[in-house]
Design a protein around this nucleic acid. Sequence first.
DNA 1: ATTGAAAGAGTCTCAGT
DNA 2: ACTGAGACTCTTTCAAT
Lengths: 161, 161
Amino acid sequence: MAQKLNFDKLDLQIIQEMMENAEISYADLGKKLFVSGGTIHVRIKKLQEAGVVKGTRLNVDRKLLGYDVIAFIGIYLEKSSLYDAVATELQKIPQIVRLNYTTGNYSMFAEVVCKDIGQLRWILHDQLQKIKGIERTETLISLEESFNRNVQVLAPGNTDF
Amino acid sequence: MAQKLNFDKLDLQIIQEMMENAEISYADLGKKLFVSGGTIHVRIKKLQEAGVVKGTRLNVDRKLLGYDVIAFIGIYLEKSSLYDAVATELQKIPQIVRLNYTTGNYSMFAEVVCKDIGQLRWILHDQLQKIKGIERTETLISLEESFNRNVQVLAPGNTDF
DNA sequence: ATTGAAAGAGTCTCAGT
DNA sequence: ACTGAGACTCTTTCAAT
């Protein structure tokens, strides 16, 4: 299980720098942090083996791909024991990109990326309403995404470490 | 502005494969899609120049970094014209990783990644409540993230292309 | 643990098709 | 447009400290 490990300042600096620029070379990152490229290499290897650094994910411009709409869907279940069954069905819908089991207003909280409002309507009306166990849904359409970043482990305002 | 462009099947296949594995080499990707590594290279360059492929983002295990809690915060504003001012303040809080301007129940919708429930309480109570313009907030705590993926442009169930 | 250099693997360029 | 080969850059390994 997620056992907490010890990281020194250099580990956290490497993670923070690579969160800001995942494509930096080991040599350049070493220069920036005043160690050799070899040291960066062994540290990153250690972080990968520890499972902290899991790899990289492709960053695409969804609008240029024709996906203009992001929406969040709060889902009320008939019974919360239906979570797993409903999650399995939601995962089959390619436009649903994220699903969380939540406390608070909703039982489940989904994020959907779709081409336009028409497709969103189709997902809500045709796709979701036929899944057994969903009582009703509430939709928040994103008009603008102000920012979307990784947690900043060594940011100025962050006193966590 | 986000002008829609034309992509052929190979472009979309490259994007889909790289969404699933951003670290695959051009040679291996070429083998998988039955073209040469050189072709993969020029296509990716074209996609980067078009702005569709924006790069890669580091994927970290937030739990191993000690960030055990994800929560979503629905924010009610006193006046929606305060959005920009409030967004600027929220961006200063390192644990707030995402912010959307939304229709529906809330004016703004934020995602926060924090160390534990105590820190979440501190962010909600001490950090948010002192920002002018926030009327009240509603918090959804994530108990489990079932999945978190990119939109699947060439998935079996996706008839978008 | 860190360094610096050599070996290996991947990216990038380009002439030919 | 795509290919394959050579030049170049980066990653990876390793002996020395």
